[in-house]
Amino acid sequence: MADTSTARNRIAWIVLAVLVLGAVAFSLWPRPGADSVAGRTRSLAREFRCVDCEGLSVADSQTASARAARVEIRRRLEAGESEAEVRAYFVDLYGESVLLKPEGTGIGLVVWALPVVAVILAGAGIVVAVRRGRRTPRLRATDEDEALVARALGAEHGTDDRADDGDER
């Protein structure tokens, strides 16, 4: 009885995994036909800072200059320029600070790579520490620690800490 329900449970999980992976594959499948110019304009406009407003992109701003920039992006894309060429045009005009997303070269690489490296290192560090912790014998709480905990719990009016999260049985 238990065996069959375990087996059924396992099958349900496998089916779910297959469905989810299938949907992911479906979403990543290249779609026929390129994106529309309007769509490309919109996504590119999000990458440029609106130069006469504070902290908004060209896509979000309603100033005349942002509007002119959107028109220019569209005109250039329609003329067959690539996204990189449009970016280069704006960088030539305003300098690199016009890009809201720093390019992944030179010093700009730091802002992209540093968090990723840090997360990987920290994650690895945690895994190593946990593994090492599991090899060493369990430390016992000192009397001082015990006293502190007892006092702390006593000070917590009532027992919400004790009542908290009854252990799994």
């Binding site: 130069v51 006469d52 005349a64 002119a68 005009l93």
Partner: peptide
Amino acid sequence: ALAFGTRG
């Protein structure tokens, strides 16, 4: 204004 890269 865009061609000159004006900011304000």
